[in-house]
Design a protein around this nucleic acid. Structure first.
Lengths: 375, 375
DNA sequence: ACACGTTCTGTAATCGGTTACATGACACAG
DNA sequence: CTGTGTCATGTAACCGATTACAGAACGTGT
């Protein structure tokens, strides 16, 4: 841009460099060496200018920046990470990507990753453990750390796959993770609170729609339900679901078809609760007058269905954000000494009362029901 | 495991290799050289065994696999991609990750990527063009190709950033993309169909809740609305929103507050339609008896609200899947010759009639309303 | 016994960066 | 004029893989 000295850039060289570096059809991107040649400096200087490390004289910096501009050079992150041993990327291993829970989680993670200058690489749909293990393995060299959501895998299995390699933050693993860094939800306690809420409304006959078999979280919630029922002297009644809206719908239909009409339903998650809600609507059962409903998770949709769904709130996006945040400190501490304090963090779900359990709007403490009560 | 000859593995060597490669606290992962040393072969042989390329004698293969097992070696994908010039990763650049639209899209992409053996790296929250450009740049060396959703950026801007470098598939760019590979939604046509549906129901006074300023898709939908209204001799009435549920709620409230009660509302997307739905519910306006509502996108929630939302369906996940699929062939054709046929693919939204526009359930062709009518 | 072909293996260059260390230029004090 | 310290720059090793090519080992036909 006119800043160039005569000798700084040889126009014919620019031309040949720009146009000759082809193979077949496609133009090959410029490398740091091309920049160095064009700027008539060494690769070291180019690197120093671009990374900001070390000192460079002003004229040199100028020449380099000119050349970078001229070649529209962009550093090759892969090569960079090979020498620096950092990828500036974190991986997320998920069982699935279906439903609002995971998308909210990803959103939170993405936000946090972005503000930490990290990239996010997601890998989902890992049904069985060996599948997930393969995914974890394939992350080596791609990421600086991993967030693993595995309602199926147990910690031991996992540890075997990772050895001492990568910083890993466990989520959704249930409460029984041995000393690994993790964020877990108190599903058991949350379920108890939910059931106790229904009990406090005078309901005794409370059914539970359970999540998929083999899912740790689903099991914990179910156990919490059973425990709360037992403590109240009630008789547990469980129908199986799989965390999908359709399964909740089916479960509720099945209950009603058998002539069973509980006073309340506690669903293992919100999507199933919504399914149950709609099934009752179809059957002419009024909620909450005939049957009260409580879900779990507080996904965005919970506040949008009518009647709005009472639920156990997990700040999903916030939890995702927090997970990345912790992974970042974990990565930092791993490359330093490695103080592993605060191994496990527990998320305590909070009861959100909406119209599906308490019909009286006054009892909702004046929260505007239409926009939901999410902060 | 008993398969080892005496001379194949020297136990003391195993021990030292396993335990001595430390730095500070953390164990350093084994490299291909460690494996080669332990197996007493060259790195080339190890590589051949692991990649399956070239021939290796059976005893050699055995020794290598033993060593890999003993060191629990996992290849470093970053290093591999530096030599092979393939990352087996595709990047997705999004403006945001909020709402069900993007999460459905990501889900579809993830599915397709997985089945193609690719990783997915997502980068979102790019509000302005320079922000997105930086994100695109930082993808160099990380991905084999890019899917860019940019309702703001124009193609020229984009092309400048990418030069001839990376295979790029454009989405959401509006219909006016010059000859770049892209997948676009016929927002204009879709909006016309939506409005014509409302017209066919006898409504003349139809309001539109528009998407955010500067969003190409929002603008196209709005133009389609205006055009259809003009064609029918109606008077366009537009309220601004920003694609969020809350904005739809506000827009509808504003309309009602002004004493305006249209016969129908066409919202720029489903979330705003849901907001409008709830606002009317609060205000005691009956849908569809008093006001009919149609949205756009057919996000999962559209089938779950009551009344279920009529909308223009885009098979969102399917579109995401398709995008990855096309990017894959684009990458393949780029490394080969490079035949760029089928530059632009147009997704035509399909009208889904639900209860928010037609109250008569019989008219819904017996679709079970509670489970939605998604295939 | 020798030339030759086949089959397997090893050496070393390469990918595109970073960075420790060596080197060179220059100023200034003695 | 020389020794020394400072500052900027360049050289080359390295990160961890892949792979072209050279070379070793071995069998075989004459």
């Amino acid at each position: 841009m006119g800043l160039l000295q005569e000798d700084a850039l040889d126009p014919s060289f620019v031309h040949s460099t720009l146009c000759v570096r082809r193979e077949g059809f496609r133009v090959k991107p410029a490398t740091i060496r091309d920049v160095a040649d064009l700027a008539k400096v060494s690769v070291a200087s180019v690197s120093r200018v671009l990374t900001g490390a070390g000192v460079v004289a002003e004229p040199t910096r100028m020449k380099v920046l000119e050349a970078v501009e001229a070649l529209s050079y962009v550093p090759h992150s892969g090569a960079r990470s090979l020498s620096t041993n950092r990828t500036d990327t974190v991986g997320v291993i998920l069982p699935d990507l279906f439903g609002e829970f995971f998308s909210e989680l990803i959103r939170g993670m993405d936000l946090a990753a972005r503000s930490a200058g990290l990239h996010l690489i997601v890998s989902s749909s890992h049904d069985d453990a060996s599948d997930a293990a393969a995914a974890i393995r394939s992350m080596r060299g791609r990421v600086d750390g991993l967030i693993v959501l595995s309602p199926h895998l147990d910690a031991a299995n996992l540890a075997a796959n990772l050895a001492g390699r990568l910083p890993v933050l466990l989520m959704n693993g249930g409460m029984n993770e041995a000393g690994r860094p993790s964020i877990v939800v108190d599903n058991h306690g949350g379920a108890r609170v939910a059931v106790e809420h229904l009990l406090s409304l005078g309901h005794r006959h409370i059914a539970h729609i359970g999540g998929p078999k083999g899912n740790l979280e689903a099991r914990e919630r179910q156990e919490g339900y059973v425990e709360a029922m037992r403590a109240a002297g009630g008789q547990p009644l469980i129908v199986d679901g799989d965390f999908t809206q359709a399964s909740g719908h089916r479960a509720m239909q099945a209950l009603l078809a058998e002539g069973v009409r509980p006073e309340a339903v506690f669903a293992g998650n919100d999507m199933m609760a919504v399914g149950a809600l709609l099934a009752m609507q179809d059957a002419g059962v009024r909620v909450p007058d005939d049957v009260a409903v409580v879900g779990f998770d507080d996904v965005p949709i919970a506040a949008l269905v009518r009647p709005a769904l009472s639920t156990m709130r997990i700040e999903i996006a916030e939890t995702g954000r927090r997970a990345v945040e912790r992974l970042v400190t974990l990565i930092a501490s791993t490359s330093d000494g490695g103080s592993e304090s605060d191994i496990r963090e527990v998320i305590t779900p909070r009861l959100i009362v909406r119209a599906s359990s308490v019909g009286d709007a006054a009892a909702l403490s004046l929260a505007a029901p239409s926009t939901g009560d999410r902060s």
